[in-house]
Design a protein around this nucleic acid. Structure first.
Lengths: 208, 208
DNA sequence: TCCTTTCTGTATCGATCGATACAGAAATCT
DNA sequence: AGATTTCTGTATCGATCGATACAGAAAGGA
């Protein structure tokens, strides 16, 4: 039933990755159908037949993006033995990902659509949801650290998760502004400097 | 020579502030001339006669923005007696500014146009330049701290300036995502936790 | 081979984009 | 008052936006 008729003349996954490059570089609204079809090497009707709409294409793109770029960052978080090592890995992986020269700089999810009141309400909400998930995942990692007695009982997991997620968001902006790998690493170093004081603050308030 | 002919029917500064609200909320490309003229209460030709173009209007808007929002943040930095107090004031003022409910959340300069390859090359470059100035100003404040022996001689002013500027950029994104004042304050608290370790690191490397 | 099904390329849809032409209105200057 | 200058409102410009209609091309099934 599915393999009847003229077969598609392009690879759907390859086309998705080419579209990802466009959205990553120009943002959602900044990417026109002309940009997309030119990069993907297909015509408008083929794009609509395969992905439904510009919105549908973008939603598939960020899912694909999460499975590629997100994976390499979160693997570092999950496999680390301590919360501290997890944050070090999180930031190091972010430095690596955001300073690559074979892709646009900074995070697609952080930069693609920040203004709700355009024609992209659903897009903006979805990206916002994924950024919130990012914070949640960090919070879970810190809580795991508390459970494993790797962090003190009074450790403020909410504060730490917000702080490190926010630092990562800021790194997207400076990366997009052209920050070097060394500059991104300096930011990561600064953020890691906060780790021990955050632990000490918890120990102090818990011990009092 | 200048006050001949029919006088302008609107206050130029008031119109500028109304336009600022639109750009602040929707970004540069997300703000259409319809949005702008509707908010400013004037017609298209009046806008073009007074400000030249959408680009010219935006450039005046960000200048105005810097004189309002920027001033309250940088006053806190300049008047502080120590570099540490300056960063505390910088972050506290940022929390205040980004959590106000009578304006859009987050920084206009950080959020208005992040994708160079749209129709807004000059706009994007100007915002990028101002963000770079932001980092420079922080760096100068740290260097002043070193000169005043308020910070150790080996203090890495570049790293610290990048770190705190990046944190502020990240705060723009989470503020735009709806972060509460408490959430922004938690990020500021996390960033301040890094201060003493950054000082200690300098003392250690300088003393060795 | 013919029919059905699906995809591709061209050409175009109505809507909206930033920007203006034009004529009338409202002020100052002589 | 009459002439001059400048601003305002309507109506519209060409370009581009996302999205499709349509006809021909390319595959499998009978």
């Amino acid at each position: 039933m599915a393999d009847r008729g003229r077969p598609r003349s392009f690879d759907r996954t390859v086309a998705l990755e080419l579209a990802m490059q466009v959205f990553w570089k120009k943002g959602y609204e900044g990417s026109s159908l002309n940009d997309l079809t030119a990069a993907m090497g297909i015509g408008c009707p083929s794009l609509y037949a395969a992905f439904g709409s510009k919105e549908g294409l973008f939603l598939e793109v960020i899912d694909h993006y999460s499975n590629i770029v997100g994976r390499e960052i979160w693997d570092a978080v999950e496999t680390a033995l301590t919360a501290r090592a997890a944050m070090q890995g999180f930031l190091d992986a972010t430095v690596d990902a955001y300073s690559r020269t074979d892709t646009p700089q900074g995070c697609l999810i952080a930069l693609a659509s920040l203004h709700q009141d355009s024609s992209s309400g659903a897009i903006c909400s979805e990206l916002r949801r994924r950024r919130a998930e990012n914070i949640d995942a960090l919070r879970r990692r810190f809580r795991r650290g508390v459970e494993e007695a790797d962090l003190p009982a009074g450790f403020d997991c909410d504060e730490a998760a917000l702080f490190y997620a926010t630092t990562q968001n800021g790194m997207s902006i400076i990366a997009r502004d052209g920050a070097s790998r060394e500059a991104l690493a300096a930011v990561a170093s600064g953020a890691m400097a906060a780790f021990q004081p955050l632990v000490d603050k918890a120990s102090a308030s818990h011990g009092s």
